[in-house]
């Protein structure tokens, strides 16, 4: 990891939040100090803040809008966000809300430039409107333009939630490879729950990013 600031962004519903949470837990397991920023100013449901308990239990610092997961539907950024740039920990930004959400990130550009960052494009080709290279490229460019930041690599998180099987993750891999070529960035990780990782090609074994699901549905027993 080149920089301590790790940003996860992508189309809404691509699984950014779960990927970012898994990344945070992995870093914690390596013994590092970890801070995660819930930077979703658009969506009131299913966000990093919903994993507050598991983050606290694991000693991961959560920076979120005071009103996240409450009834106040207000597009605000967390108050104490500037402090993260001075912290000697891995800082993970979970940026939701497409380019509208990413727009709010642009105000910190000077800090991102000063401290350096990696920005990961999370993609799920099983989501409508992001099934092809062209669609993915469009959303990636919109996020880059809005945030004034540049993606450094791709996290393939193609999944069908509970119906994910070993065929799912690489089902449209050609599109993601095309995207990788067009953007000039590598496919750094192929992410999936255990059921997704049964048939990973030998040459991609090093890219596997095993996921656990941290935000359960209301009917799932925790």
């Amino acid at each position: 990891m080149k920089y301590k600031i790790q940003i996860f962004s992508g189309h809404f519903g691509s699984g950014k939040t779960e990927v970012a949470l898994n990344f945070a837990m992995n870093q914690k397991k390596l013994g590092k100090k970890v801070t995660i920023v819930d930077f979703d100013i658009v969506n009131p449901y299913f966000r990093t803040n919903d994993a507050k308990n598991v983050l606290t239990e694991n000693g991961i610092k959560l920076i979120a809008n005071d009103y996240a997961s409450t009834n106040l539907d207000m597009p605000t950024v967390p108050l104490n966000i500037l402090s993260v740039f001075e912290e000697d920990s891995v800082v993970i930004f979970d940026v939701g809300g497409d380019d509208d959400g990413a727009l709010a990130l642009g105000q910190y550009k000077q800090y991102f430039d000063k401290y350096g960052y990696e920005m990961h494009l999370v993609v799920n080709t099983k989501r409508p409107l992001t099934e092809s290279c062209e669609d993915l490229l469009e959303i990636a460019q919109r996020i880059e333009k809005a945030s004034r930041l540049t993606f450094t690599d791709i996290y393939n998180n193609t999944n069908l939630s509970v119906l994910t099987d070993e065929k799912t993750l690489f089902s449209d891999y050609g599109e993601i490879e095309k995207l990788s070529q067009k953007m000039g960035i590598i496919i750094k990780k192929n992410c999936g729950i255990e059921a997704a990782l049964g048939n990973v090609p030998e040459k991609l074994k090093d890219t596997v990013f095993k996921m656990n699901i941290f935000i359960p549905k209301p009917w799932e027993i925790q």
């Binding site: 519903g13 799920n124 099983k126 989501r127 409508p128 999944n159 069908l160």
Partner: peptide, 13 residues
């Protein structure tokens, strides 16, 4: 073929 959708999007489609 299955896709992964939010309920709101699925109503629209």
């Amino acid at each position: 073929e299955k896709v992964l959708m939010k309920g709101n999007e699925a109503i629209g489609e």
